[in-house]
Amino acid sequence: MMKIKAKTIVKGIASGEAIISRMPISFTGGVDPNTGKVREPGHDLEGKSIAGKILIFPVGKGSTTGSWQYYATYKRGNAPRGIINLQAEGVVAVSAVITGTPMVHRPEQDPFAYIKDGDMVTVNGDEGFIEIG
C-alpha cells in the first residue's frame, strides 16, 4: 500500500483499475458517450474505454462544452469512477462535480512513476489522497 497526498476537487471515495494517459483529454469529440471509448485519433488511449476505471491524466483540454458530454457519458454508465489530474481545469472539475465523481489533483508525488494501467487505485477525496494497491 502506498499513499500519495493530493488536493481534493470533489469529495468521496472511489476504487478501481487505473487507466493512464500522458496526454490531455477533451470530452467533446475526444470520448464517445455511448461507449466510454477514447476516439481522438492519435491519442494514447485511442480505442480504450475509460468506463468504470480510475482515470489518471495530466489535464483537460478542448471545448468548454465537455462537461455536457461528460454528463451524458456518465448517465449512460460509461464514465470513470474517479479522476486524478496533475492539474485540474474548469471542464474536468465541473464534470466531476455534476456527476459526484471523486476527484483529486496536484498529487505530491508523480503518479505516473508509481501507477501503471490495471493497478488497483483508490481516490480519496474526503481526506485528499491516492492509495495504490
Binding site: I9, Q87, A88, E89, A93, V97, I98
Partner: peptide, 12 residues
C-alpha cells in the same frame, strides 16, 4: 450544486 461548481472552478 451551483456553488459547488463555482468553488471547484475556483480551486482549480
Amino acid at each position: 450544486k451551483c456553488m459547488e461548481i463555482l468553488v471547484a472552478v475556483g480551486e482549480c
